[in-house]
Simulated assay, not measured.
Amino acid sequence: MSDFDNNPFADPNPFNDPSVTQVTTSNIEPVEQYNPFPRSNEGLATHTTPATTTPYQPAVLQPSTEPSPQASAAAAQATLLKQQEDLERKAAELDRRERELQSRAPTEKENNWPPLPKFFPIKPCFYQDFSEEIPEQYRRVCKMMYYLWMFNCMTLFLNLLACLAYFTTGDHGVDFGLSILWLVLFSPCSFLCWYRPVYKAFRTDSSFNFFFFFFVFFVQIAIFIIQSVGIPSWGNSGWISAMSVIGSNKAVGIIMIIVAILFTMCAATSIILLKMVHGMYRRTGASFQKAQQELSHGVMSSRTFQSAATGAASAAAQGAFQGNN
């Protein structure tokens, strides 16, 4: 039992060994504080030597990025299907809008000119609406042409009264009879031959209607000048006829002078309006070639021409067939 009572750390103490005490009391730095790069070599860290590059680079295998034919075909098919869907959607939208416009717009415009009473047996023959059918830049000139036509009709009526008064002064029955003819003839003809063509020309920008208007309106200006001159026995109360009667009957002469002034105003206003319409015509881009195209298209689309052409073709075919037999 005495061995267990002995102190294992009694002398000799293993920590008092000279080799151990030499290590613990040495001035050598521990491993954690050891610097393999001494301070004297710190300047070497700032000097770097560039690496040498060889003229030949190692070959690197690049992966292929081109899609396979199957993938390309699938992508193209998907693109076509998408475009087709977009086109179908746009077509459906256009059809829907067209149906809406057709449902809103009236199927047929009711004629409103001449403005006759509803109980009148004759119904209006034309539809006329400046604010709806005529563009704003042409509306003023088109209305002026309409007012010129009405002024012409009024002048022709006053010419009839003046010729009637002229007829009472002597043997001038021919002038009175022709004045009635000019009123009945020129009033509707001027409306159909030069006012309606210029109205349709402004409404649809039609080169054919412009050319037709210019041709007829030149004739109308010549007629205005002849009426204002007043050649005797021509049915016009112009300057010559008025001056021939003013010496014998001043009242009739004054009436005829007033009508001669109105005819002169018609001629002057017509020349001014012709220049205005011609200036607008040049700005619309109309041309003689375009007028020819419109005329040929109108003739070819006419049902009368189509039926006549069909009949002529069938007759020629039958004649050729019978000739061969």
Score class of each variant (00 low, 15 high):
315 A>C: 09
15 F>H: 04
77 Q>V: 05
255 I>M: 13
126 F>G: 01
121 P>E: 12
306 Q>L: 12
123 K>S: 03
219 V>K: 11
296 S>L: 12
222 A>L: 15
299 V>W: 01
314 S>D: 10
169 T>Q: 07
98 E>Q: 13
50 P>F: 01
46 T>N: 12
155 T>F: 01
97 R>K: 14
253 G>C: 03
177 G>R: 12
272 I>P: 00
98 E>L: 11
33 Q>I: 00
166 Y>P: 05
239 W>K: 09
239 W>A: 08
219 V>L: 15
221 I>G: 09
210 F>Q: 05
14 P>I: 15
132 E>I: 09
53 T>S: 14
48 T>R: 09
3 D>V: 10
102 Q>V: 06
253 G>F: 00
291 A>H: 05
197 P>S: 10
236 N>S: 11
42 E>C: 03
240 I>N: 06
202 F>I: 05
110 E>W: 04
299 V>Y: 00
127 Y>R: 14
187 S>D: 01
247 G>P: 02
161 L>F: 07
103 S>W: 00
143 K>C: 08
75 A>C: 05
46 T>I: 02
155 T>M: 01
283 R>W: 01
122 I>S: 03
261 I>W: 02
221 I>Q: 12
43 G>E: 08
143 K>E: 14
307 S>K: 12
308 A>Y: 10
54 T>P: 05
59 A>V: 12
194 W>F: 14
319 G>R: 12
89 R>W: 01
196 R>P: 01
265 M>L: 14
159 N>K: 03
12 P>Y: 11
259 V>D: 01
